[in-house]
Amino acid sequence: MKPFAFERARNVDHALSLAAAAPGARFLAGGTNLLDLMKLEIEQPDTLIDVGRLPLADISETAGGGLRIGALATNSVVASDPRIRSRYPVLARAILSGASVQLRNKASMGGNLMQRTRCSYFMDPAMPCNKRLPGSGCSAMGGLSQATALFGASEFCAAVSASDMSVALAVLDAEVETVRADGSVRRRPVETLHRLPGDAPQVDTDLAPDELILAVELPPPPSGGQVWRKVRARASYIGALASVAVAGDRVALGAVAARPWRARATEAALAGGAAPSEAAEAELASASGEVGRKSLVRRLASDAIQESRKGGRS
């Protein structure tokens, strides 16, 4: 790990001013992903701004009947909250299917959104990887890794997002609220927080360096059943080969793109009265990549939509 300065942020303004003053700084919340990458020197911040003690961990009702989840609420706290469990079970289940209890106890809402891909070539500093070292090439293309993007990949990067939680947030139309050192507050759908790789795969999100996630807001849950399904080689403690979140008539796919992937074509097909399997197939018209991965996603989405129509799972 490269040496770095460590700052304990006293409040949000302090955190933002520290960030504005130190261009090579990174905010540190739970640290479960950032410290992992720093040990491998994939991340090399000059300064860590510890925001872990800031008062951003509350979960509260919004005027519109939704929930506002502070950026520092841990994954475990969010998944255990009775309001999340009863109104947004798809979110609780997505979180609970990720990582381990130990990691979820530490990982924050904001940190989960900021986690980087777990592509094995990204994780080995000796390998070419455009996301890690722009211009070095993409080892995943033509490589052994199966977890490559079906949607939105570019010629420079085919890595997928590792976040289960964000897939559920996308299907719930959640918004991410951020603030910058100049005081500007911004909200955008969680779906657009993450960039597709294009020609700059090293940039994961639309956040500026001095931009801090304050909260995620959930609108009231849509009517209809909610379903979370995650496919993986072992039964726990491993990332998804593919995942799907369904809430009412909305569908989002996970581990298939650099961002949580709202399956708009599927949703449109469902709205037009298509059967679940046809609707799932509709999304794949725009997919690139391996046939087997496409089959998996089609079958998984179709089955999850059917399950949601039977009421979903609490």
Binding site: F6, G31, L35, L103, K106
Partner: peptide, 10 residues
């Protein structure tokens, strides 16, 4: 928690 993914100063 996992003590390996945390800094003492945190």
């Amino acid at each position: 928690i996992n003590a390996c993914l945390s800094l003492a100063v945190m």
